[in-house]
Write a protein that binds this DNA or RNA. Structure first.
Lengths: 201, 201
DNA sequence: CCTACCGATCGGTAGG
DNA sequence: CCTACCGATCGGTAGG
């Protein structure tokens, strides 16, 4: 029987739980992320797992938050200092595509946001709200980048930033499906060509 | 207590179960489609529901098959006799967009295929295979239509049909998300503009 | 972080 | 198509 742990040990345990939780949720959804499964995978008791969060919903929200930190670190941070506008937009499309391919250790079932969005889009509640907020924020980020590109003259005057953001999103939803459902090897080539068309000057 | 029913009555009951099942699965996923929930909604016993299918998996497959019949009836049948190539492609994009908006009584949680694809894309088994088959068949349908459009000179020579099919799919994935997650009123306008760009001659 | 437990629900079966 | 039941698992709690 494990005694109570120090604060740093407890924090480390919490991180292990959340990391495993992201992987499970990526495959089986945030509802399929059960406390018993998590406990078994980690060799802990259910109460030991739940004690870190209190409720399943809090665990789901913790997994979402952690996933958004992975996304920010992997997709946004590397391009943060690239020149705003079209250069940064193209750069983040690159890191975004890599993220879908590379983060498979973290998200073996594909992007957790996409999974969570579909899973909760017809429901209410804090989880749905958190997912919607994350998507909205990223869409806004894209639209802002497009707007800058237009101001700089890298995209035609009169381009609708929200329209381009919508279309870019569609390409990445298709890429995610191509990878996850079809395992298609030319998914990235298709994505690049589609983006070239959407972001054509 | 209900006695055994005649064959036609039994068939009617089965159809009621499947119809309700599609609606539930559209919101809560094919795993969230539980036998107890279905029985409660229909005022039946669990054994009465399950007797029509044998296993939950068979019920899931029945819901998918019924959904594909709805899709065919709503999206494909109305355009079946339109001139092949770009005219039919544009026409089916129209019925497809309408389907996402109109079939909300049948699929209150949005297109069942999109939900099922995300839910099962990281697993194996017959349900995943059925979903993948449906998507593949529809993608092939789109690509064939594009190829015909190229032959007829409605799209530029050298156009890659699979590339266009990929991009069209992306637009509709984005439309589904726009409707379900954001409830955006200009989703259809965005879709039309995106398709105009993808299908530009 | 553990053991021990709670009521509810899961998919499914036996038997009529 | 029903009642009655099965073992397994769910989220969560009490108490240490």
């Amino acid at each position: 029987m494990s005694p109570r742990k120090s604060a740093v040990e407890a924090r480390h345990t919490r991180e292990r739980i959340v990391a495993r939780g992201m992987a499970i949720a990526s495959v089986d959804g945030l509802e399929g992320l059960t406390i018993g499964r998590l406990a078994a995978d980690l060799g802990m008791s259910k109460a030991g797992v739940l004690g870190h969060f209190g409720t399943k919903q809090a665990l789901q929200l913790a997994a979402l938050r952690a996933a958004s930190e992975v996304f920010t670190r992997t997709v946004w941070r590397p391009v943060e200092h690239v020149e705003p506008g079209l250069p940064r937009l193209r750069a983040l499309c690159g890191t975004w595509a890599d993220y879908l391919e590379t983060e498979r250790a973290t998200f073996p079932g594909g992007c957790l946001f996409t999974t969570a969005a579909i899973e909760f889009d017809a429901r209410g509640g804090p989880v749905r709200d958190a997912v919607a907020r994350l998507f909205t924020a990223w869409r806004r980020r894209l639209a802002t980048e497009v707007a800058t590109a237009v101001e700089r003259g890298d995209l035609p005057a009169g381009t609708d930033p929200d329209q381009v953001a919508f279309e870019v999103f569609g390409v990445f939803l298709a890429l995610n499906q191509e990878i996850q459902l079809f395992g298609s090897p030319d998914a990235h080539a298709r994505t690049r060509r589609a983006l070239d068309r959407v972001l054509a000057g």
